[in-house]
Design a protein around this nucleic acid. Structure first.
Lengths: 143, 143
DNA sequence: ATTTTAAATGCAAATCATTCGCATAAGCTT
DNA sequence: AAGCTTATGCGAATGATTTGCATTTAAAAT
């Protein structure tokens, strides 16, 4: 039912333990809910998915856990237009997003060339890029 | 005191009238406050700047006016990280933004090549881009 | 210029997403 | 198993933005 090998969960858990992050029932429920998500869920969506594994999880804990996971670099927070923040596991190489305006679907893509150009632009302006955000909003081409 | 030729205000006004937008004292105060801003003010900042011209302006009206102006394509709304939305007059050619993480300064830039690559990527994914958002977050290079 | 009519305004209350305070519960160290 | 420290759930607080409503006002009609 999950779209990822469950092995990743154990890895994530030990990585987090190694960083001194306490592993609680709720945190594991949230983490596995996220690992089992093929989309980019909101905190609210993650809450209901996590509750399937542990009904005691509260929304506040989802937010607090996500903060911890984002701090540790385990999770990425995206703020697309419209909805609240959307989260994803940071276990894939860097990518940007294309959002389907009709369905809300989020498609991942990446472009070495765009990244390179961004660096060049920042360089010319005398800046070092710490991070960036690139989102394309569009609709499927009518053929 | 303004960084733009005031001529633009009259143009904006007649364009808006032509679109059937009612011109009120408050709307003019907000519009001219924005035209006189060299930065990317928030609604709150715009409120205090507009109040210098017309003290009767309220925050609700700033928001309502900005909505109208965004709808009409006169104003662009940006949602950078951290603060609330920031606005700018849509009288310049398209550009993206680099945000200085230390000062909050917003620098505009544009890259034909990046735009082109975005189009190509969307094309490959079967999409037409309606709009996009590209923001670089960084700090000045230590020399 | 005055009336008319639909739309804009100010104010305060309502939303929405997210955060926080606090008393209780539960990890992790020994 | 005991103790210390951090995490949790709950509900209240926050911050940005929106909305309902009674009142004012811009622009159209007279």
């Amino acid at each position: 039912m999950t779209h990822r090998d469950p092995k990743i969960l154990n890895e994530l858990e030990s990585d987090l333990r190694a960083e001194g992050v306490r592993i609680t029932r709720q945190r594991m429920a949230i983490l596995s809910a996220l690992a089992g998500s093929a989309d980019h869920p909101t905190a609210e969506e993650l809450l209901s998915r996590a509750r399937e594994k542990d009904p005691s999880v509260s929304l506040a804990t989802v937010y607090r856990t996500l903060s911890v996971l984002v701090e540790s670099g385990t999770v990425l927070r995206n703020e697309f237009e419209g909805t609240g923040a959307r989260f994803e596991l940071a276990d894939k190489p860097h990518h940007d997003h294309l959002i389907d305006l009709d369905t809300g679907d989020v498609i991942e893509f990446s472009s070495k060339r765009i990244e390179k150009l961004q660096e060049e632009i920042a360089e010319e302006l005398g800046y070092d890029i710490v991070y960036h955000r690139l989102e394309l909003y569009g609709r499927t081409k009518k053929t």
